[in-house]
Design a protein around this nucleic acid. Sequence first.
DNA 1: ACGCTTTCGGAAATCGTTTTCCTTATCGTA
DNA 2: TACGATAAGGAAAACGATTTCCGAAAGCGT
Lengths: 331, 331
Amino acid sequence: MTTIRDVAKRAGVAVSTVSKVVNHYPNISEDTIRRVNEAIRELNFVPNTIASSLSSKQAGRIAFLLNPNTQTQAIDEITMQYMAGALLKAGELHVELLPVFFSMLEDKSVEEVETYLHSQGVGGIVICGMSKDDYVLQRLVAREHFKNVLVDVPIVNASTSYISVDQKQAQKDVARKTIMDNQGPSRDVLYISGKQNGYISEERLQGMLELARELDFNLSVHSGEFSERRAREITLKYGEVNDVIVCASDLMAIGAMRALTDMDVFHPVCGFDGITLMGYAGKQMNTVRQNFKEIAAEAVNEVVKLLAGAEGRAVIMPHELVRLEYMDIIV
Amino acid sequence: MTTIRDVAKRAGVAVSTVSKVVNHYPNISEDTIRRVNEAIRELNFVPNTIASSLSSKQAGRIAFLLNPNTQTQAIDEITMQYMAGALLKAGELHVELLPVFFSMLEDKSVEEVETYLHSQGVGGIVICGMSKDDYVLQRLVAREHFKNVLVDVPIVNASTSYISVDQKQAQKDVARKTIMDNQGPSRDVLYISGKQNGYISEERLQGMLELARELDFNLSVHSGEFSERRAREITLKYGEVNDVIVCASDLMAIGAMRALTDMDVFHPVCGFDGITLMGYAGKQMNTVRQNFKEIAAEAVNEVVKLLAGAEGRAVIMPHELVRLEYMDIIV
DNA sequence: ACGCTTTCGGAAATCGTTTTCCTTATCGTA
DNA sequence: TACGATAAGGAAAACGATTTCCGAAAGCGT
C-alpha cells in the first residue's frame, strides 16, 4: 500500500506538504502542487481514509438510520430508494455512510447509541422512517451531540434540519384531482388515513379536512395504519356507500382497489407515495410521487452542510402528481 | 470521548493491559480482568473502531458490492433483502460493512477499484448481482488481493467462495410441480429463459432441458432477458399454442400471466425467486423461494471465515417451493 | 542595505489503538 | 540455594494521515 510518505519521497517534499496539496490548502506554489500530483498519479496513491479520520479527529462519517420492515417479506421499495439516494450522494461527496437499521439499536439506551456512534467516528446522522414520538429519536435530537437530518419528522434546532414534501398540500392536490375527475357524484368521500400521531398522517388528514370544507363534501375518516389489509377491510365495510376513496398511502390504495374489484364496485381510488407497485393494482390510479432517492440525497447533502457549520432548517421537497398504470411502469 | 487511556488510569493499569483485556489476550490475571472491565463499564468505554483498524493494520472491513437497478423505479425487493441480510449479520459479527453500488465503480480500472477498496480498509468483498463475464469481477477475483464471496457466480479459488441455491434442481422442481398439477394436457411447454451467458440462466435452462427429456414434453425456449415486458411480448406471441408457461424469474412470470389474462387464456404459469410482487399477479402461481436475506447473511459469514484463514468453497443454500397469492402476502 | 511582511515548505506532535518486546515476580526442580 | 521457565503486566514503537508551529527565502518600501 502506498502511503503519503512514499509520495513525499518521490516528489522530494515533506509529508506535510503532500497532505496540504491533497487537501487543497493555500500557500503551496503551483510548481510544488504539480510535482506532488504527478507523484500521486505515478504511485496511484489514495489517502487512507481510516488514518485520515483518526488524525483529523473530526468525526466525519454519517450514520444513516432507517427502519425497514425486515420481519415481513413486505416490499421495501421506499427504503431501497432511500438507500440508493443516500449512498450515491455520499459517494459523490466523498463522505462515508454507515447504514444502521434501527432494529440493531432498539434495546440500547440513548447514551449507548451515542457512544456506539461516536466510537464509529460518526458526526452526523440521517434518520428515515421513524415516528416523531420515538423516544430514542427525541433524545438523540434534543441532546445535539450530532448533526441530524430528519426525514418526515418536523424538528429543527441549531444542529437539526428536517426534510419532507408539503404533505398537506400534496394530499389536497391528489384528492382534489381525483374528486374533480370523477364522472359520477362526489358527495361522499372515504378517507383511509395513516397512523394516529404520526406527523405525516396528521398533515395529510388536515389536508383532507380542509379540502372537504373547500369542496363541500362529506368526509368519513378511518385509520388504516398504513396497512394494506386494514385498508381492504375498511373498504369492504364502507367502500360501497361512498363515491371516492382517498388513501394516505399507495399500499392502502391497492388494498382498497382490490376490495372494490372484489365487490364489483368501480369508485375512483387515489394513493400517496408513487411506488411502482401501484402499477400492479389493476387500474390506473392517481398518486403523489415523492422522489425518495432525491429526498435521501438531499438529506445527506444537508447533514454535510450542518457538519460544515450551517444552521438547522426545514427543507421542503417538491412533489408531483402522477397516474400509474401497468403498461407504463414495466421494463 | 473516553479513551483507553482513561480506562487504564481508572483501573490503575497500563493501556496495553486494557487492550489485552478487551481483545481477550491470554496471560492476564482474573483480578486484573475484573478491575479493567469494571472501569470500562463505569466509564462507558467503547473502543474507537477507527483507531483499532488503523493500528491493527489488518483490513477488516467488508465491501458489499451490488448492482441495483437505480435508473428505473423498478422494484428492488431482492436487493433490499440482500442489504438487510448482510447488514444485520455484519452487525451481529461486529464487522463493518461498506455498501458499494457497482455504478460508482464502473468507469474505474481494476487497479483503481482495488486501491480505492484498500484505502477504505477493505479486506473482503461480497459481490451480488453481477454476471460471471463481467471483466472487473473476473480480474478482481483472479488477482486475489481480497477475500471474495460471490453470490450466484460459480468461481472458487483459495480466497474465493461462492454461494447460490441449486439453480438447476430448483428450476426442475418448480416446473415439474406446475406441469404435474396441470389439469389439461402438458405436451407443449413454453420456457421463457433469462439472459444468455448468465450462470443462473444457463443452469435453469439445463434443468428445463433435462426435465423435458424426463417427462417427455415439447419445449420451446425464448429468451426473456429477465424483462417483464419481453416476457409479455413472448407470451402474446407464443402463449396460446402452449399448455404451460415456465419462466426463469417472477417478474417475467408476472408479465406472462398478465399477457395471458389479456388474451383470455388460462394456462398455468410459474416463476422463480419468490418475491412478494408475485402476490399481485392476479392468480396463484408456483415459484421457488430463495431466501435472499439468509443468502446475504451467509455470504458475510463466509467472507469473515475466509478472512480468518479458511479456504474458498461452494456453499449451496436450500430452496423452497411456494405458491404465492394476494391474500397470503398482504400485511 | 536594512528591517518588515508574506509565502512556502518542513519537523514533529497528535489521534486512539495494537503489538512487540522487556522487566519483574513467582514457581518448580535439581 | 540457584537456575531456568513461566506468568503477568508495563513501556514504547508502530499505523498513516493531519495540523500546528516555526524557520528560511523572497519581496518590498525607505
